[in-house]
């Protein structure tokens, strides 16, 4: 399973998004109201513990990390290093 698929399903489950059609790879999951600031902390915690990578403030500033595409791209790049 790709990182993106795994993340997408984890977020869907964890934040009880269900089969909402607006939940896409390019949707801003925060702006859309699927996830709040507390949820953002949980997502970072999940990524850091599951994939054993560290997300830095630079990653967030440079890549945005507000859509599944953006978040997965950061994690993929980290795992390649």
């Amino acid at each position: 399973m790709s990182i993106k698929t795994d993340l997408k399903e984890w977020v869907r489950e964890h934040f009880k998004i269900g089969d909402n059609p607006d939940y896409t790879d390019v949707a801003d999951i925060f702006d859309m109201g699927f996830v709040d600031s507390f949820g953002a902390v949980e997502i970072i915690d999940y990524i850091e513990s599951s994939y054993k990578v560290e997300i830095t403030q630079r990653d967030i500033i440079v890549h945005g990390m507000k859509t599944l595409d953006e978040i997965a791209a950061v994690v993929d790049a980290k795992l390649l290093d």
Binding site: S37, I61, G64
Partner: peptide
């Protein structure tokens, strides 16, 4: 950068990186 306020757990690292001495922020 505004995006960092979506990820509050990473704000302290930013304050350290930029040697910030003072903040006036909303309670949220």
């Amino acid at each position: 950068p505004e995006v960092l306020f979506t990820f509050p757990s990473k704000l302290p690292a930013y304050l350290l990186e930029k040697n910030i001495t003072s903040i006036l922020w909303v309670p949220t």
